[in-house]
Design a protein around this nucleic acid. Structure first.
Length: 473
RNA sequence: GCCCCCAUCGUCUAGCGGCCUAGGACACUGGCCUUUCAAGCCAGAGGCAGGGGUUCGAAUCCCCUUGGGGGCGCCA
């Protein structure tokens, strides 16, 4: 049975790199029919917070990367928070075992200068502890040993133990260090495959030494290349936002983000770069993952997202849009959308042709939902204040008032007839009406917009604009 | 300093000794469409890091150099 895990430390938001790691773990596990485990590595007391833990879990859930065992849902191998496991004495127990096996020692530090090691001991230095000396436990690396392992991506790896050196496994505050806690937990949780960032590659031989010391079976490793920024330095805030939450507030879809993350360093057949991740579980293969670090391309992400936005079933888009508004706290608008679901659907359907993200979708669709839309300055100056504005609007009101055919074709007929009256050029005529009914000069197609808005709204808006035009002259 | 990983258009990649005159996608440029802006369609520009080998033949195999990244924490 395949068992994998994603083990973030709650010291910040979920980073796109972390999301990508989680994605590969999840994908592999779902394909193999195994269990995907979420473990919270909160051994860094200073920086870990419950808030970040919640944010990370929310972000993973939003992406749809559901876990089978974890701190919130429990499971047989829990607890799933390292702080809780520490409380149960799990790490103490295994550290003690290593000391008994003479594979680890206590280290006593100078009281004044805690960076200075006084001595090592196999016995617990009780009296020094009483006197307030810092005491850690250090793992002793074997001497002159070649540590080899097979990385699923890198192939055969080989390190000399002497290059690595001894390292601390229990801190003086009683908490385990990362390299120790992962091994103990991965073993106890019966993890079979570890997919993680390449930054852990050099730590792996240390961890393998611990597995070997205990005589535990070593899991399979696969170290995934890191995501870099445009200048090839590690992706960070300098390059732009990196947290999943940011992309969520920017209006990216889970499908879009996931698709892009998969595409990053993933071999895809020509013409098949747009897909829903759930449709790719079956065909997922570890050998599709490239072994080269990759640069995060915000533009391609937006393109991928736009593809999803435009091609997904409209019902799902409505659902995602609503969820998005909830997320960014636009509750009033949500209520408005729910009032006329059919209208909402029609509006979003014509608006999505123009945009790539839901933030942009909100921008362009807002005037459809809100009769109190604002007029762009450019529209007022360039069209509404012109001489042709009032006569043209008057004519439009008359014609649309008489119009009974509100299909797209019907609206087109009216518009073309209006233009043929030569009150203004065709372009000016169309733009004046466009701005009159939506306040903007960039909108979905004019005929379809008129059709979707319908007679009531169009007439209301035309006369509202007429009032404004008159007040301006 | 020591150890490790990586190297094809600006970016993500195809390529695994002859199908390569190096293919696709994003971005870019031009065109078409057109009521705006997009989308869409068509076309174009753009790359095997460098040097040695191996071979009849190298983007592909080997070595070196260079460049980028990671690790060597009482961070994870």
């Amino acid at each position: 049975m395949v068992r994998t895990r994603f083990a973030p430390s709650p010291t910040g938001y979920l980073h796109v790199g972390g999301a990508r790691t989680a994605l590969f773990n999840w994908l592999f596990t779902r394909k193999e029919g195994g269990k995907f485990i979420l473990r919270i590595e909160d051994t860094d007391l200073e920086r870990s917070t419950k808030e970040y833990e919640k944010l990370i879990m929310d972000a993973l859930r939003w992406l749809g990367l559901e876990w089978d065992e974890g701190p919130d849902i429990g499971g047989e191998k829990g607890p799933y928070r390292q702080s809780e496991r520490k409380k149960q004495g799990i790490y103490d127990e295994y550290a003690r075992k290593l000391i008994e096996m003479k594979r680890a020692v206590y280290v006593v530090y100078d009281k004044q200068d805690s960076s200075k090691e006084l001595f090592e001991s196999l016995e617990y230095p009780e009296e020094y502890a009483q006197k307030g000396h810092d005491i850690t436990v250090k793992f002793k690396m074997p001497k002159g040993e070649r540590i080899v392992f097979h990385d699923l991506l890198k192939g055969q790896m080989s390190f000399m133990s002497d290059d690595l050196g001894d390292f601390i496994i229990m801190k003086s505050n009683g908490f385990p260090t990362y390299n120790f806690a992962v091994v103990v937990d991965d073993h106890l949780m019966e993890i079979t495959h570890i997919f993680r960032g390449e930054d852990h590659l050099s730590n792996t031989p240390k961890q393998i030494s611990i597995y070997k010391a205990f005589g535990w079976e070593v899991p399979q490793f696969m170290h995934i290349p890191l995501i870099l920024g445009k200048d090839r330095s590690p992706l960070s805030k300098r390059h732009g936002a990196t947290s999943v939450d940011h992309f969520r507030t920017e209006g990216y879809l889970p499908d879009g983000l996931l698709n892009y993350l998969a595409l990053l360093g993933w071999k895809v057949e020509e013409g098949k770069e747009i897909f829903r991740i759930s449709e790719r579980i079956e065909s997922f293969s570890l050998s599709d993952i490239s072994n080269k670090s990759v640069i995060f391309d915000y533009e391609k992400l937006e393109w991928v997202n736009g593809k999803h936005l435009r091609s997904m079933e409209i019902e799902r888009l409505c659902f995602e849009f609503r969820r998005y508004l909830d997320f960014i706290g636009m509750i009033e608008l949500t209520e408005l959308l729910d009032r006329d679901k059919l209208y909402t659907m029609e509006v979003l359907d014509i608006c999505r042709e123009k945009v790539n993200t839901m933030k942009q979708l909100l921008d362009i669709s807002l005037p459809f939902f809100n009769d109190e839309y604002e007029y762009e300055e450019k529209y007022i100056e360039g069209y509404l204040k012109k001489d042709f504005a009032i006569p043209l609007l008057q004519e439009a009101i008359d014609m649309f008032d008489k119009n009974e055919d509100w299909t797209v074709e019907g609206c087109e007929r009216v518009m073309r007839e209006l233009a043929s009256k030569n009150i203004a050029s065709k372009k000016k005529t169309f733009q004046l009406i466009r701005g009159a009914i939506l306040g903007k000069l960039v909108t979905p197609g004019l005929f379809i917009s008129l059709s979707v808005l319908g007679k009531g709204r169009v007439l209301r808006r035309l006369s509202k604009t007429m009032d404004l035009a008159k007040s301006l002259s």
